[in-house]
Structures are given as structure tokens and as C-alpha cells.
């Protein structure tokens, strides 16, 4: 297990009259080398949950195991910086973290903080920028002058450059155009398949979740309402109705095909896979 939550609760503004319990007795195992999606309504605690993964928030009660780090509520927890080098967290609206005078310098900022030499940090920055599709001709431009989508890419590169074992993304595609969003998701899937990164992704797009996530965590009111294989979640009508989940378009399409008499395997979960199976039948 890459990450284990044990009876973890988190309270914002603990001890104040307006204290708010955002996570309530969470028990959760997130598996290594898989893509895990976290879904749920706005305010259900998704961001609060993922901010625990690199110890930006420390639990109010319970404990948390990440790789070989243990974080216990109300104790002095050490080695947080080392943890942050192993768990890369890309924030919702990550573009607000950009500040260096050039894109390349900004991408190299993380590795430099984690103790890499200047040249090595620049090397890693270049590699990460290449991954997110920022061409070399742009390296010397100011990150503050880019379009929203480009800023987001540079910000994501800033985390990829750290080369973490676990990559956590909080709504990384919110506000991106469909093409840009698809490219980003493809990148995360590739990082998982080729580079064996554990990927945890918060998403509002149930199609992305359905297409790519091995497992899904459904949050509701600060509690885990479901955790298990993604495909099983979307087959469970009671869960879908209770939580007002939108069915993925891909799945609706697949069901319609099956109703028309096409035989499509359970594993076919992306448009490409479904189309391939249909084509094979027709031929």
C-alpha cells in the first residue's frame, strides 16, 4: 500500500466556534502503481484529503502512512520535506505558484529546493517542460505572460521536475480547453503506465474517471462513501442515485450499443476500446 489513512479526521479552525469537520474518520488504502480517482461534490473534502498526502495539512485525529513515512495527529512530525520530494502535489489552479523570471527557472525551482545542483535542476526542468509540451523556444519567457492553459502546464512541469514517486493532482484540468485537458490526462496516464508512478487525481469529469482510473474514492460529507474498482462504482445504481453522480458518456454509449445487440467486453472503457470492438464485429 502506498498510502494508508487510519481513522483520520481533520477539523478546520479547531477550537473556534466556527470549527468545521472536513474529514470524518477516514479509513482508506491507496494502492501503489495505480491510478486512483477521487470524486465527490464540491465541499465534500476532496482537497482536504489530498492536502494530507504531502503533509500540508496534519491530521486532527488518527494517522496516516505514506510510503515509509508515518504521520500521527498531535505529534511532532519530522522529515516532511523529504516526504514532499516523494509526493508531488499539483494544486487546483496551480498557475498561481509561478514567480520566477523565466519558465525554465520556474520549472527548475522545485528540484533546486530539494537539493539538486543548478545544472541538474535545469536538466530536470527541461525534461518536465518537454513532457507537458512547452517548446524550447519559450524557455526564456516570463511565466506570468502566458495564457491560462500554458501557465497550468508550466506549473505542472514544476512538480514533475521533482520526479516524485506519487503524483497527486487536484482538478488539474479544470478550466482547460478539451484538447489541452485530454493531453494532460494522457500525460498522467503515461506517467502511470510507463514510469510506474502512483497517480491520485481529483476530478469532476466522470468520463476521465471511467476511462482511466483503476480505483475510485467517492467522498460525501467528509466521509468515504465508496472505495473500490471504478467500473463497479458506476454499475451500482443505488450509489449513483444517492450521490447524484452523472453517468460517464462513454458508459451510456456502451450500454446503448449493448442494448442494440453488440457484444462488448466489460474491460472496454474508453471510446477507442469500444470502437475497436465494434469494428472487429462488423468486419
Amino acid at each position: 500500500m502506498a498510502i494508508t489513512f487510519k481513522s483520520l479526521s481533520y477539523i478546520y479552525d479547531e477550537g473556534m466556534p466556527y470549527a468545521h469537520k472536513a474529514l470524518d474518520d477516514i479509513n482508506l488504502n491507496i494502492s501503489e502503481n495505480k491510478i486512483t480517482a477521487i470524486i465527490g461534490e464540491t465541499g465534500s473534502g476532496k482537497s482536504t484529503l489530498v492536502e494530507h498526502l504531502n503533509a500540508l495539512l496534519l491530521p486532527s485525529a488518527g494517522s496516516l502512512e505514506i510510503l515509509d513515512h508515518v504521520i500521527v495527529a498531535k505529534e511532532k512530525n519530522k522529515g516532511l520535506k523529504k516526504l514532499r520530494a516523494e509526493v508531488g502535489l499539483v494544486f487546483q489552479f496551480a498557475e498561481y505558484q509561478l514567480f520566477e523570471e523565466s519558465i525554465l527557472k520556474d520549472a527548475a525551482f522545485g528540484p533546486k529546493n530539494f537539493g539538486f545542483s543548478e545544472e541538474e535542476a535545469i536538466e530536470r526542468g527541461k525534461k518536465a517542460l518537454n513532457m507537458v509540451g512547452i517548446p524550447e523556444s519559450m524557455y526564456q519567457r516570463s511565466p506570468l505572460d502566458l495564457s491560462g492553459g500554458q501557465k497550468r502546464r508550466v506549473a505542472i512541469a514544476g512538480i514533475l521536475a521533482i520526479d516524485p514517486k506519487i503524483l497527486v493532482l487536484d482538478e488539474p484540468t479544470a478550466g482547460l480547453d478539451p484538447k489541452g485537458a485530454k493531453e494532460m490526462i494522457d500525460l498522467f496516464v503515461e506517467l502511470n503506465h510507463k514510469h510506474h508512478k502512483t497517480v491520485v487525481i481529483v476530478s469532476h469529469d466522470n468520463d476521465v474517471v471511467y476511462n482511466y482510473a483503476d480505483e475510485t474514492v467517492l467522498m460525501s460529507g467528509g466521509k468515504v462513501a465508496y472505495h473500490g474498482p471504478t467500473l463497479d462504482l458506476f454499475e451500482d445504481e443505488k450509489l449513483i442515485n444517492d450521490n447524484n453522480l452523472l453517468l460517464p458518456q462513454t458508459m451510456v454509449f456502451k450500454k446503448a450499443l449493448i442494448e442494440k445487440g453488440f457484444k462488448i467486453s466489460k474491460e472496454a472503457r474508453t471510446m477507442d476500446m469500444i470502437v475497436n470492438e465494434v469494428v472487429r464485429v462488423i468486419k
Binding site: E51, L56, K81, F91, A94, Y96, Q97, G110, K112, N113
Partner: peptide, 15 residues
Amino acid sequence: ETMRIMNSQKSRGVD
């Protein structure tokens, strides 16, 4: 915003 930016930079190893 300050908290959020601080958190983003902490994630990038700023102490």
C-alpha cells in the same frame, strides 16, 4: 490566496 500560494511553494520544497 496567501495560504494557497504558501502551500504550493511548500510542495515545491520551500521552507
